[in-house]
Design a protein around this nucleic acid. Structure first.
Lengths: 219, 219
DNA sequence: GAAATAGTGTCTGTAAGACATTATAGG
DNA sequence: CCTATAATGTCTTACAGACACTATTTC
């Protein structure tokens, strides 16, 4: 049975750059919309991919060179209207990476755009990005998700600023730190101090290595 | 380009029956797993369905006769291992319906099973049901979602019991009602009173008709 | 010492939880 | 009257928010 459904994956890769949340876009190397900016995406390959998330990881790696520490299925976009080539499914994913890992691991073929100011894109890619941002905002309010945008070690102020940036709200320093210590998912890194023209700051890392921590309260 | 990916939808239809959460299952009318219980599901039909959610609604209607007041995309399950026929995608949805609407609108070809005691099912259908229950539990804690399991009019005690059943926790009556009135999404139905061998109870309905209400706090 | 940021302490208001009390039906 | 449930009130505690204060570095 041939249903003639095009099956693809797209990835919304987000990172912090220049004190703003940025989306990674690529110039399409083929028709349709050749040479236009779009999300990294591609066909599912049943012979290579064990499931759609594996497909998303493969596509991200092949197109950008990046292996993200956090990648999650977002939503499945579908229909006959979104792609000229026919009725299609895109299982969209989103991923987070810290900027230095992106600069180091990436193959330089991609471009960063401020997440709140993305140009009009082909297909329904603008909508997919909106979904990703909404998911990120929601999930950040009750999890350690924003830490994937930071390097492995960071100060509490850096973490707070990241939460503030994502959620678009100011947080009180004292309240934020009280909650963090209640949530008990960070640990100070011995002898790791961030210097500056002021009192130095203790560096922290996530306790459970590289695992998303879900809180029972909001930050 | 033929990718040979089987594209399907499955629906986890949940309802309240006998003071428990129940899943609707059907006996499969074709191979594989003919005559075994499974989730209502079917192929996506690009010529009929505008998107996957339309496909899920169509499949649910055709197989069970039911049009659910609430149906939401859940998660996309995929891979070469889940279906003998080949590499497949199932865009799973979940839906809620109150029991009397199910009895009235349904075509009697389905079966109810307690959601916490579903028999082993073909494909990854047990896993899909687990996902649906987890989503229902999560979303219920901060929304009016459980009201879709109740008739259009209900008492506050019935609503509270529904929340308790879904989330598996006891709630304090006074606290629950205080929060509900703060959340301001219910309205009493004039002259609608539920009688019994005790003080009669006021009947309520959701203010915004048939719309999911998201709270900024938990119930 | 001044500037800048790190890090902690204190007060207050509000909301949640526990529980008691009153209200209103049937028998 | 008793029983059962509806509906509301009260007290206490916990936590969020606001803000002040202290600490430690560079210049």
């Amino acid at each position: 049975m041939n249903q003639n459904v095009i099956t693809t994956v797209d990835v919304v890769l987000l990172t912090l750059a220049g004190k703003a949340l940025n989306v990674v876009l690529m110039k399409r190397d083929r028709e349709p919309f050749k040479n236009q900016y779009a999300l990294p995406g591609g066909y599912i390959r049943p012979d290579e991919d064990v499931d759609v998330t594996a497909a998303a990881k493969r596509v991200l790696k092949q197109k950008t060179g990046i292996v993200s520490p956090y990648l999650e299925q977002l939503y499945t976009f579908s229909g006959g209207a979104r792609d000229l080539r026919g009725w299609s499914i895109s299982v969209a994913h989103y991923a987070l990476v810290n900027e230095s890992a992106l600069r180091k691991g990436g193959n330089e073929s991609f471009f960063l755009f401020p997440a709140d100011n993305v140009p009009p894109l082909p297909f329904d890619h603008n909508k997919i990005i909106e979904f990703a941002l909404e998911r990120l905002r929601n999930k950040s309010s009750y999890s350690s998700l924003p830490s994937y945008l930071l390097p492995p070690q960071f100060t509490l102020t850096e973490l707070q600023h990241t939460y503030e940036l994502i959620m678009g709200t100011k947080l009180d320093k004292s309240v934020f730190r009280r909650k963090l210590s209640d949530l008990d998912f960070l640990e100070p890194v011995k002898n790791a101090i961030k210097m500056g023209k002021h009192r130095p700051a203790q560096l922290y890392k996530i306790k459970k290595d590289n695992r998303l921590v879900i809180f029972d309260r909001t930050v």
